[in-house]
Design a protein around this nucleic acid. Structure first.
Length: 301
DNA sequence: TCTGGTCAAGGTGGT
DNA sequence: ACCACCTTGACCAGA
């Protein structure tokens, strides 16, 4: 068994159009029929991507939040869970059969700690869609929904308190999947660690965000704490890793992964099985290249 | 068939 | 007060 498994996010660049999973629609022409067609096509694409991944021994993948377009939008509601039950379940069966580790990651508009009630309600609806989708795939609580803490609103303590309160009000099927990730501006690794400890949920450590956040360096003690937030029913700790794009804004993802830098990072981790989600622009191609660069040198792959 | 403007959505920081 | 940026396509109207 590999101690370090690599994954990639949302898009497969090796498959052509057959691997598309995020066809979407403008709200203006989002009829239930149209959304259903798009969703079905996306699910076929997802099935292709998972098959491709398994055949390339890639067992970790992030499903695009766009798999069911506009799923949580109040003006575009339809019975996607009922109408696509068989298709979603079938894709899930394939993933389970092959022991894949899947996750999802709602975008920057999902803000659970907003002072605005309507924003919190929309965030809860979006998280609910993610949880229902993973539930419908028949996946255990090891398959996570990754979220950022949200805004600061000139008052960190109040904003963190609001996050805790709103988290406690979420239904259990969301709570059991929710994990929090450090961001590059608002909430750094210690903020998120403390919050995760108080909520009893895991933390996803993002390497590039941590570097962008500045202030503190990286050491084994921090990573030990991060790993401790993951208990048995959460599965392996999940980490996000990407290389800084040279000459671009701090935090911008490079196309590929720097293998030496990656190995240095891995050397700081506790000796425990881990899943590393690569957030490189070249997606699966960056993963294959990294694996090639590392092969034989360290016996990881 | 190609291209450029636009798209559900929030928060932050610069002007 | 307003706008660009974040992630990032993908859609769509018009050429």
């Amino acid at each position: 068994m590999n101690r370090v498994r690599l994954g990639y996010a949302c898009i497969n660049l090796s498959l052509g159009s057959s691997g598309r999973t995020s066809r979407t629609s403008r709200l203006s022409n989002a009829t239930p029929q149209h959304l259903e067609e798009l969703s079905r096509a996306n699910l076929v694409g997802l099935s292709e991507v998972l098959r491709w991944s398994v055949s390339h021994k890639i067992m970790v993948f992030r499903i695009s939040s766009g798999i069911i377009p506009l799923a949580s939008h109040p003006k575009a509601q339809w019975a996607w869970k009922q109408r696509l039950r068989r298709e979603i379940s079938s894709v899930g069966n394939f993933a389970r059969k092959h022991g894949m580790r899947l996750s999802m990651h709602p975008g920057q508009y999902t803000v659970l700690n907003s002072p605005r009630e309507d924003v919190v309600a929309a965030a809860a609806a979006e998280l609910s869609y993610h949880a229902i989708f993973l539930d419908a795939m028949g996946l255990s609580s090891e398959h996570k929904i990754v979220l950022h803490v949200g805004g600061v609103y000139d008052d960190r303590e109040a904003s963190l308190r609001r996050f805790r309160e709103n988290f406690e009000n979420l239904p259990a099927n969301i709570q059991r999947r929710l994990v929090l990730e450090n961001d590059e501006r608002n909430y750094g690794v210690y903020d998120v660690l403390n919050l995760c400890d108080s909520l009893g949920i895991p933390m996803v450590f993002d390497y590039l965000h941590h570097r962008a956040y500045a202030s503190c360096g990286l050491n084994s003690a921090v990573m030990e704490r991060v790993f401790q937030t993951w208990s048995g029913h959460d599965g392996r700790p999940e980490l996000h890793y990407s290389t800084q794009k040279l000459g671009a804004r701090t935090g911008a993802h490079a196309d590929m992964i720097d293998a030496d830098d990656f190995l240095h990072f891995i050397s700081l981790l506790p000796r425990r099985a881990v899943d590393v989600m690569l957030e490189a622009k070249a997606k699966d191609k960056a993963l294959l290249k990294l694996r090639l660069d590392l092969r034989g040198r360290y016996g990881l792959w």
